[in-house]
Design a protein around this nucleic acid. Structure first.
Lengths: 221, 221, 221, 221
DNA sequence: GATGAATGAGCGTTCATTCAT
DNA sequence: TATGAATGAACGCTCATTCAT
């Protein structure tokens, strides 16, 4: 009984959360009314308040649910590779794949969250990711994998900026939203261009290395 | 026309617009109430509606006023230089200098716009800038100034993404907001890293070139 | 009938009722939510509705439960004494002792009831007590125990008014809530002053009589 | 212009306040919805919020507007007379006359206010009046006008209690609400009974004195 | 009987917009 | 043109009540 009702509760919560993501993505932070969420979830108005203290908490949950997974996947990617190149390619892949799997959620993360007037802790979320990547670049710098003069924090910001706006190009339709191929190509290009800017110049081995690694790491996943 | 006929009217309009930027930057899109704007502008409540049809038009004007200047300066920069390197450095400088001169306005442009849920045409504004830069990279590509395999549109997106998040790092305080020096250094670094990723490899001349150009182009302006 | 058939049920009902008094006293009529009552009674939310049709019935029950006992004790006191003086002293004692025993319940009766906007029949309850006392004064008048010109109904109203506000002085803290002694002194004073105003002038015997009776009737009980 | 619009504003405020009293008296504290007040005042919903910060402030204003006048008239009466008897008769008259002039407002004061869950400062209002009267009795005691053993604070509470419940008898219909005569008679009786209980025993002169004063002080006003 | 999730009407409050002066 | 009072739709939140288990 307990287990069953509990399962149901968790389900309901998820249903509402999903509905909130939907409405959130469709109408944006300000247009996202509790009534809409309830309707989308096919649930009574008041029930939303059974599971979430208020609108802010609901939207914060939407954000955190999406963001937490994203960040943990990022962290994994940043730790998985052995070279900076692998790490960066991993990070880029995580971002692009998140978009492929759930463009709506990424759209929310990219376009709406943080523009929520401080209700949702964008500064915090932004900082979290930046710091994660800063650490990654810092380690790389120590190992001599970073171009001279490249600042780890700036590199981190630039990396995510490049990713964000590249994805935004898809979100707003400048790039073909539905083409798997153009998405994969963009994923590879972003990593390459960024890496070239960031890695120390290793003239003779560059071309070979890059193509090798690309073949291994960036084939369609 | 009407706007031209009377200096006072234009002044009033500008006063209100400036006040709107202020409130917008301070409270964000949703917290920006007409009453606040009127109070900030020291103008009667109803007068706002003499100069702007409604809230949306006011905010669109805020956006466009800021954005238009920014875009025209960008365009100028993109056309001024003779090499891609100069152009990119020019673009980066325009962005960073806009921030130096009026961080509040940039904050609005960066953090607030788009939060308006489509009311303000973010896609359009974004597209405008991206296309501007895409053309710049396309020309460079034609002239052989772009690394093989670099896609102009993606380069454009990455450039502005890198700039945006680098500035965001200042906006949210990850980098020292008030230090002129760190701002200038970041400006140079962003351009360098980006250029290295985007220019074709010119191994032997690189170091010299870069320092020369930096001295000329990136000294405090 | 149903209420009699099962001791447990009656217990539950009483538990809930007591909890309702508690919450009622603590938070007042409007702050008294069913959820609070259930929590206070350590009973499931919905169970309240097994024992009480709705909130109104619950609160009416709270009122009636408290009021019924109070009224019956009043009636007893009004019938017990043989002289008006004894009866009045008895009535006053009942009121003050009710307060001593359960200030919270009296607080509810005094400060909260009637706030219910007609839901709880204040008029009726008020009328009941007034009529009870009116009859008492009427009998006394017939027996020549009432000062000439004193109207029984007005006397009844004045008696309870005097008692109510004297107790209110304790409830709101104008008089020392926790001092047993000041409560007993007030009890005696109220009876005395009221009786002096209401009894026919019996100059010569007054002082003696009063002190005698006070010693008998108004010592700490 | 200023003067005119200001006059209008004050008028509107008053209209709303009056409407609030009306609805308040009709439906009680809890049933008094802003929408009703607005409708009663024939005013747009939102306008109520132009003049009052929120519901609480509106109702507090209702209370204070009524109460302040009442208290100031009480204070006047308590200071006007030269003897305790005159003062008490004055106080009683003020209360009964307030009721004659605006039964609805008194009904609000008696039945609803203070039962408003602490929102309206009943304790404070109650205390104010009690202290006012306590001072009056204290002075009388010093001048030897108070019966031995009568406590000023208790006398004050009893006086207002007697008045309140006597008026309540009218409010709830136990006494004839519409008969001017019964109201005036009650007014006289309450004062007499109370005074007899409170004044020191002056056996021989009592009857004469009382009737004299009554003729002067308690004729229909 | 007992539980607490589900329902939805109701109300306070805000604020963009209009309008009389 | 300038003012700010007036309007009312919209929306977040509460909580009495019902219902499935």
């Amino acid at each position: 009984m307990r287990a069953m009702s509990n399962g149901k509760e968790v389900d309901r919560r998820r249903t509402i959360l999903r509905a909130a993501v939907e409405v959130f993505a469709k109408k944006g932070y300000h247009g996202c009314r509790i009534a809409d969420v309830a309707k989308e979830a096919k649930v009574a108005y008041g029930l939303v308040y059974h599971y979430f203290k208020n609108k802010d908490e609901l939207l914060r949950s939407v954000f955190e649910a999406g963001w937490a997974g994203f960040v943990s996947r990022l962290r994994e990617a940043a730790q998985a590779g052995s070279t900076l190149e692998e790490k960066v390619r991993g990070v880029v892949r995580v971002a692009f794949d998140s978009y492929r799997q759930d463009p709506r959620a990424v759209k929310v993360l990219i376009l709406e969250i943080g523009r929520s007037g401080g209700r949702v802790n964008r500064g915090g979320a932004f900082a979290e990711v930046i710091q994660l990547a800063t650490a990654m670049f810092e380690e790389a710098r120590v190992r001599g994998e970073l171009a001279a003069g490249a600042d780890p924090l700036l590199c981190a910001a630039m990396l995510f900026g490049a990713i964000e706006l590249a994805l935004t190009a898809f979100v707003v339709g400048l790039l073909d939203r539905r083409s798997e191929e153009s998405l994969l190509r963009a994923r590879a290009r972003v990593a390459e261009v960024f890496l070239r800017g960031v890695l120390p110049a290793r003239e003779e081995s560059w071309k070979t290395d890059r193509s090798n690694i690309r073949q291994k790491a960036d084939g369609p996943s």
